[in-house]
Design a protein around this nucleic acid. Sequence first.
DNA 1: GAGCCGTGGCG
DNA 2: TCGCCAAGGCT
Length: 359
Amino acid sequence: MSPTTGAKHPAPSSRPRKPATREANRRADGAATSTSPQNQGDPTLAVPSSAPRQGDPIPAGPTASKSTLHRKILAWYDANQRDLPWREPDCPPWHILISEIMLQQTPVNRVLPVWREWVERWPTPKHLAAEGPGEAIRAWGRLGYPRRALRLHAAAQAIVERHGGEVPTDHTELLALPGIGSYTAAAVASFAFGQRHAVLDTNVRRVFARTVTGIEYPPTAVTAAETRLATELLPSHDARAARWAVAVMELGALVCTARSPKCGDCPVSDQCAWLRAGSPAHSGPARKGQAWAGTDRQIRGALLAALRKSREPLSHPQLVIEVPDSALREPTQRGRCLSGLIEDGLVEPLPGQRYQLPE
DNA sequence: GAGCCGTGGCG
DNA sequence: TCGCCAAGGCT
């Protein structure tokens, strides 16, 4: 849990990016005071009176100011952040981008070993772009959602072709890359280049839903109101905003968790609208779980796992052996899944009913 | 906008 | 045990 040291490694690049050291971040954060006149125009946080909805304007009140929220959460982050390698001050933007793609819907602990393999094997976009997509799919291992590997490979090629092999710093250009959506573009621009963006992931949305709006869970899909709220809460200065983004995420990941929030450890529990309201249960529709047994995804996963394992192309019968028993009686489903994998570019068909990862 | 896309760990 | 959930994106 100890903060990483900032001066251990020299910054290898002169390209614009995040502040080089944690000290620089601390300096950038130093302007925080809850009483300075410049904060008078800030929205003030208070308990919503009734029927709060995520993104409702923050009502005025004497309880706690925006800058207080900033100060407490940033201080908490300084003391409690995890020591993750992609947060090292000199971590290259490309390595940060890889981490963000891998972390989409996949827990940190499973990402760590695969990320280390990737950044060692493909230290720059050019290295990855030089190989076939099948290598990316194979090296993806069991992280899940293997189309992410395919898109990351395509992103590497686009970075080489369109940006001279350097991860673009511009949010719009990041957004144009395969596999990079609203969240990841903002995350890379913020974490790798120290820019000011509203970084709205599931953690941040949950923290704001509880502390500000007073509800247990955010809506299913990101609303315009949430984006507005996240933007309003962004600190003014780039470096501080970037640090704020990762700090709120970390709070959501470690304390303000989905199931059993550790409100006793929360730095802003005293001003949490949801807690003050008595921690009311989620009133919206139950979040639908994803079916798994017997689904196409299970079959696709089994087929692709077999191809990942084998260095040689597999025949159709060899492939069939790998799918679960429950699906053996469903050649229609199997065929649909194999076709789907081929359409997605995850599998390459060869003459004679043989298949392999794409070259 | 709803549905789809993997995988594994945990309460 | 088993449903829920994990730094989303794309169609």
